[in-house]
Write a protein that binds this DNA or RNA. Structure first.
Lengths: 218, 218
DNA sequence: CCTTGTTTTGAACGTATGTCCAATATACAC
DNA sequence: GTGTATATTGGACATACGTTCAAAACAAGG
C-alpha cells in the first residue's frame, strides 16, 4: 500500500526521508488512537512528529489518505501473525474451538502489551476503527479477510452449527478483546483492585470467550 | 441535571421553548452518536434541529456542557430500568448469574431495538462514550453506579470468587452488548446472511455472556 | 396597551482547520 | 563540481469552528 497513491518517482527516497515518513506516521498513529480522526489535526501530527506542517501532506498525502495508511500499515502484519498462529496450531494436531480463539486473540493482546508503545497505540486505533461505523469499509478491508478465515475454521470444526453462530462468536470475542485492551482499567476500577496482572487479564478474557464459544457452538 | 448550570430564571420556560430545547438535544444526541464529539459542530446541531446557531448555545450552554447533558439525560432512566429489573427478579426468588446478566443487558438492548430512533441513537452514544478514554470520568459518573450494583450482586451470588472475576464478567458483557448494538451488521456480514432476527441476536448474546460468566464464576 | 423577561435572530469576533505553492535546502548521479 | 530530483521550509489561501452580543420578536401579567 503506497503512502501517496500514484506516486511516480525517479529516485528512491533517501534514508532521512524514510525516517521522517516513519516519524510522521508514528505520530499520526499515536494521535489518531488517542483522539480519533476528527480530534487530531494535521498540525497536531506535525508538532508530535517535530516536523513542518507541509511535510505531513508531502509524505502522507491528505488527511484521510494518511489515516487509511496508518490503519493499514500494521494490519497486514497483524493478520499474518493471526493466520500463522492458526496454521502452526493446525500442524500440531486437531484444533479445538479454544485453539482457534487463542490464535485470534493472542497476537493483538500480546503485541499491545509487549510490542512497544507503537503497537499499544495501534491496538487502540484498531478499537477506534472497529467501533465507528464511519470506518466500516476500511475495517472490512483491513480486518475482515482474516476474520473470515477464523469463522471458516470454526464452521469447519462444528459443521452442524449455523455460520451465524460462528460469526457471532468471533464478533463478541473481538469486542471483549478490544475492551480488554482499551478498558482494563475499568475492570480494575470495578474490582476495587490496583492493576491486575496482564496474564490474569489474559486468562479471564480467554476463559470467558472460550466458554461463550463452546456454549454457542457445542 | 440542569441544561445550563447556574441558570437563574424569573419565569418558567414556555412550552415552545421547551420543545426547542428538546429538538436541540435530540439533534445533538443523533449527531454525537453518529460522528462523535469532534465530528459534530454546533452548526451541524443547529441545522439538524432546524434552529439558529446562537440558540444551541442559549439552550445547551457551550459544546461540552451540551455533550454532558446529552449523555446524562437518559443515563438515569437506563440505570433505573436496570436496577428495577434486578429488584423485580430478586423478588421472584433466588437469582442466578444468568438472571443478573439478563437484567443488565436487556433494558439497553430492548430500548435500542424498540425504544424508537432516539433510544437507538442513545445506545450508540453510550457505546461511543464507553469506548473513548477521553470520557472516562463522564462514563464513571453516568454508568458505574449501576454497574457496581451488578458486580456486587455477582459477588454476593458467588462469594468464594474474587471480585476481579465479577468485574471482568461485567466488562466483557458490556462490550459484547455494545458490539451487538453497534455492529450487528458485522455478524450478519461474517455470517453471509441478511439481517438475522433481533431475538436470535439477543439469544446468541445472552448465551455467550452467560456461559462466559459461569466459567469465570463457577 | 405597556412593561418586563424570555426567546430568537443576525452578524460578528478571533482562532483553527486542511490544503496548497513558491522558495530554499539537501542529496545523489554523472 | 554541476545538474536534477527530492525534501524541507515559510507562508498564504479560503473555509469552518465555538462563542458572544446587541437588537428584534415574542409571551404574559398588570
Amino acid at each position: 500500500m503506497p503512502l501517496k497513491p500514484n506516486e511516480t518517482r525517479l529516485r528512491a527516497p533517501s534514508a532521512r526521508s524514510l525516517e521522517t515518513r516513519t516519524r510522521i506516521v508514528d505520530a499520526a498513529e499515536r494521535l489518531f488512537a488517542a483522539r480519533g480522526y476528527d480530534g487530531t489535526s494535521m498540525r497536531d501530527i506535525a508538532t508530535e512528529a517535530d516536523v513542518h506542517v507541509g511535510l505531513v501532506s508531502h509524505h502522507g498525502g491528505n488527511k484521510i489518505a494518511l489515516f487509511h495508511y496508518t490503519v493499514g500499515r500494521r494490519a497486514g502484519e497483524l493478520s499474518q501473525r493471526r493466520v500463522d498462529a492458526l496454521e502452526q496450531m493446525k500442524a500440531k494436531g486437531d484444533l479445538t474451538v479454544a485453539d482457534v480463539l487463542r490464535c485470534f486473540v493472542d497476537p493483538l493482546l500480546t503485541l499491545s502489551q509487549e510490542g512497544g508503545p507503537q503497537w499499544r497505540a495501534y491496538a487502540r486505533l484498531v478499537a477506534y476503527v472497529s467501533a465507528d461505523d464511519r470506518w466500516r469499509t476500511l475495517a472490512e478491508v483491513c480486518f475482515d479477510p482474516a476474520a473470515q478465515k477464523f469463522v471458516d475454521e470454526l464452521v469447519a470444526l462444528k459443521p452442524d452449527r449455523s455460520r451465524a453462530l460462528a460469526a457471532a462468536t468471533l464478533v463478541y470475542t473481538v469486542s471483549a478483546l478490544l475492551a480488554q485492551i482499551t478498558s482494563s482499567w475499568r475492570i480494575d476500577a470495578l474490582a476495587g483492585e490496583r492493576s491486575i496482572r496482564f496474564q490474569q487479564h489474559r486468562k479471564m478474557l480467554l476463559d470467558f470467550c472460550v466458554a461463550g464459544a463452546e456454549r454457542l457452538l457445542d
